[in-house]
Design a protein around this nucleic acid. Structure first.
Lengths: 221, 221
DNA sequence: CCTCTTTGTATCAAAATTGTTTCAAAAAAT
DNA sequence: ATTTTTTGAAACAATTTTGATACAAAGAGG
């Protein structure tokens, strides 16, 4: 399980982030000032840090100097929407930044991108009793191996990486059938439905992989 | 909750705005001159600013110069109905303007449009114990998920985004059934009533979603 | 009260969307 | 080159959603 450190002094925002990241399958640690973050980083290992700029005691930029040698990706969270801050944030070594208030979906997307860039995406994904080893292309349900075709595999990975999130049809085509998005009419083909069907059958996901009528699908716990 | 800053020196008007925006679910801050507005903007983050042109100390145009780099949408409020002012307001970077005296409904509509344009609409809406996650198409009453059809969902979102406001029948058809507004007779169909009925039943809104006879409906707290 | 207008409800068929089967082309493996 | 596997198109079935119709109930105004 990937570990994310959230350093944000506004409790409601911090809580919101923690709640959503936990649900998305990350191990979260929330701290409310730069000093305790520095302490925590002494002894613990994190895969990603979400860092507010305005913090009590040690501010985000100062903490950044401390983090840089550790080679942990950082996404800045900033309340100030000024361009200056954006530039400063990125040049100080952050991987990305978000301006408050932001959409949770946006945050999750950024985290995904940054983790992938750092090769910190976990190679073994899980959903309930399903295990997906992305390095070796092995899928297990319980102890029995399930053989999936490449497209089925890709689709499953997308769903598990985005569990509890509704993936709209367009989005799924974008992610799994990028070659098709420029073709004429996606709505006239049953390709996605067909693969959903195959995943449901092979992995007995009838109740977990839900249809959201007129929207898409969601893998929910 | 979206934060709106109201900079208006005429106290009665300011109060009226604050009252109505608060009721509509916005977090309001009212200030009465340009200088304190500039101070406030130093440290706080807003999603939208309502700005009077004629202000003590620093006037609206001057303040606008200060706001522009922050990338916060501004709606000008002006007592002068002269064309000059209209042009100046828009070219100075405002998103929209309103001429006093204006209808509150008009103001709310403009705010909605501007916020949508800036992607600042909240993705999670609430009304009492009802939660609507517009990104994920999930509706909950308390902790139990309620499944709504697409039209029901749209209608509910419209009501929550316009809570405490009477939505006239025409307006509702305009917002949820835009494809029908060019057809002949809306009054001969029971479509809207039917969907109201379904929402009331599914979400137990009998007392909250009120019928305004000969007008429309209102979702009231 | 009675009448007219407006709103609420039940029923049901049409329309839209999703699920399933079959099968041939494309890709991969042998 | 041949066999096997994967993929997705086409046709069709099932399901869900939607709104028309018809009628009942409620409100407004005399």
């Amino acid at each position: 399980m990937l570990k994310i450190l959230i350093v944000e002094d506004e409790k409601p925002i911090s809580d919101l982030i923690v709640m959503n990241l936990t649900r998305a399958g990350y191990n979260c640690t929330a701290l409310y000032d730069g000093e305790s973050a520095a302490d925590m980083l002494e002894t613990n290992n994190f895969d990603l840090i979400l860092l507010d700029i305005m913090l009590p005691k040690i501010n985000g930029y100062e903490l950044m100097e401390y983090i840089r040698p550790m080679n942990i990706p950082v996404i800045f969270i900033t309340a100030k929407a000024s361009l200056d801050d954006r530039i400063k944030g990125l040049t100080s070594g952050a991987e990305d930044y978000l301006v408050k208030p932001f959409e949770i979906v946006e945050l999750l997307a950024r985290i995904n991108i940054v983790l992938r860039r750092y090769n910190k995406t976990e190679s073994v994904l899980t959903f309930k009793d399903i295990t997906v080893d992305t390095d070796n292309h092995i899928v297990k349900k319980g102890d029995t191996a399930i053989s999936l075709t490449p497209k089925e595999f890709e689709l499953l990975v997308v769903f598990i990486r985005n569990k509890n999130i509704t993936l709209f049809r367009d989005r799924l085509y974008e992610l799994v059938w990028p070659e098709l998005i420029y073709s004429d009419e996606l709505s006239e083909t049953r390709t996605l439905d067909l693969h959903i069907q195959r995943l449901r059958k092979k992995l007995a996901l009838k109740n977990d992989l839900k249809t959201i009528y007129n929207a898409g699908y969601r893998l929910a716990e």
